[in-house]
Design a protein around this nucleic acid. Sequence first.
DNA 1: TCGAAAGTGGCACTCAGTGTCAAGGGAGGC
DNA 2: GCCTCCCTTGACACTGAGTGCCACTTTCGA
Lengths: 194, 194
Amino acid sequence: MAERKRQLVAAEITEAALQLCAVKGFDSTTVDEIVEAAGISRRTFFRYFSSKEDVAIQLLASLGADMRDELRARPAGEAPAVALRHAVGMAIDHCVDEPVKSLRVVQLILRTPVLHARMLERQAQWREWLTADLAGRLGRDPATDLFPEMAAGMALAAFEAAMRHWSVSDGAADPHELTDRAFAVIGPALDPRR
Amino acid sequence: MAERKRQLVAAEITEAALQLCAVKGFDSTTVDEIVEAAGISRRTFFRYFSSKEDVAIQLLASLGADMRDELRARPAGEAPAVALRHAVGMAIDHCVDEPVKSLRVVQLILRTPVLHARMLERQAQWREWLTADLAGRLGRDPATDLFPEMAAGMALAAFEAAMRHWSVSDGAADPHELTDRAFAVIGPALDPRR
DNA sequence: TCGAAAGTGGCACTCAGTGTCAAGGGAGGC
DNA sequence: GCCTCCCTTGACACTGAGTGCCACTTTCGA
């Protein structure tokens, strides 16, 4: 019940922030403007979000966790290319499910350098998760074997590329089709045999 | 002559900043401490560097330009895998030439999230440069063809992985050998034939 | 030698983020 | 019904990053 209210307030803040950023841009939007629009105090804002960037980045937080969980859930014997495609597909589904909201956030992030940087930093965490799972399922030591790390990096590069092209197409392109094409490029390198 | 002094002051600031960050960590080091150690005013600091992060990131600025220039200088008919390996090698050479200084900076960046984020943002710029050159030399349209973008992304992922493993090995590993192993993974995907 | 131009320092300001404390508001025990 | 405890909120003050402005110094060319 208290949790419900908390999520409600967070959604209120997020909506106010995105609205303002869409008009004035992220950098020119101050926290004071956001809290006034959301009807809360400045101090409360920072109890819900650790920073101004966090409001935008938080919306993508679950993507990484979903990718990690999906990869874990894939059959152990599945080829890395297939398992990774499904994992990334789980994140892509978020964009397909809520195209308007997702597109707005993705475009804001990609056109705001500081937000883009934060998102890339998040992806570094995702890469570590994927690397650990791949190393486990392939029985390789990620400290000495670069394959798991590179495979995770390539999958995330494909994800990034799909997001980027989806963003510049203003949502006209199909995210899954873009992802398929990106995976077609990296496919030949995702086969672990040597 | 004025340019000489400018570079001298910049080097002074950088040295003071790295020294302090090595002891106290980046976040706990204030600009006031840096300017006091460097013997300049706070205002002058921000005339040399646009932000505190910039002091560390600036040291890697030339890497991206070198990669881009080297890729441009490679023969037009050269295979992407070979050309990209040479381009990345140009950046790796910096680390090999000045191992102590480079290692110190790389380790600071990799262990400081905000610096890591800034560096990744820089790499996004490098990726655009490499993408444009690859698209040109392969005669492909990067707006519709994902290959140049993915190839650039994979090359930078290899660079990142090599830097990371070089950093955690405390400089014991050979950066070029790490890069070769990373490129061996992505090699099968860098062949543009379809 | 004089004057323009550039570099430097000092000051005041905005804004992000944090610690602290007091007030409000709901849930449970008397 | 009332009191108490606990959690949330708001207000205030503070630090630190980054910027605009102005005065001063240095330097270079006329």
